[in-house]
């Protein structure tokens, strides 16, 4: 069954239909939040918050729209808001271990078994990629995350970001130029 049919059923009071949508998208939402926030716990909380927002705002969903586009829009706005408030908090207080914890989170995921040296190298590369992506502006970052990690087409990204395909192409092109510069030393090694 199509997502739009599930949301229509949910709008008519079928709670099971909402659960089905959550099952379908929880992985994508959680992973995308993780790309934005770089912290497993924060991204889990954010994913929950996003579905709560979707639950509360389901009446606003127009039947002619695509559910996934709407969901992604809610998600991106939420993640960017979390990043903004995190920046404010960082500005107000001195650096806490929160950000560092975010970086270390991935080590626990990556180093489950295998060669410790290569795991360490992998963690180092992951850190470099995250740092590089984080330094992009929010539009470029969103385009890169949706394209590279969610596998969305330029048209889908344009719909989510409410812009043109040409603009998405240009954002991705500039983002890759910047990423190429920042990750130059790692790209040389390969």
């Amino acid at each position: 069954m199509q997502d739009e049919e599930f949301i229509r059923q949910f709008q008519n009071g079928d709670e099971q239909a909402f659960d089905e949508l959550v099952r379908r998208y929880q992985g994508q939402v959680h992973n995308t939040c993780y790309r934005f926030l770089n912290d497993v716990q924060d991204s889990r909380d954010a994913a929950q918050d996003i579905f709560i927002k979707v639950y509360a705002a389901s009446r606003q969903f127009r039947p002619e729209a695509k559910f996934s586009t709407w969901l992604y829009r809610v998600m991106i706005n939420h993640c960017l808001n979390v990043l903004r408030s995190r920046k404010r908090r960082q500005w107000l207080s001195t650096f806490t271990s929160r950000e560092n914890r975010g970086n270390l989170d991935h080590l626990s995921v990556a180093d489950a078994g295998g060669n410790p040296a290569s795991d360490l190298e992998k963690a180092e590369r992951t850190r470099a990629v995250r740092k590089a992506i984080n330094s992009l502006n929010s539009e470029q970052k969103t385009a890169v995350i949706l394209h590279r990690y969610q596998g969305l087409s330029y048209q889908e990204i344009a719909d989510i970001m409410q812009t043109s395909v040409a603009s998405v192409e240009s954002r991705l092109h500039r983002a890759k130029l910047a990423l190429g510069r920042m990750l130059a030393e790692y790209l040389k090694e390969d």
Partner: peptide
């Protein structure tokens, strides 16, 4: 190379 490098990270379980 850059594309492959960016995709190296595994998704969360």
């Amino acid at each position: 190379k850059l594309n492959m490098f960016l995709e190296a990270e595994e998704p969360l379980p």
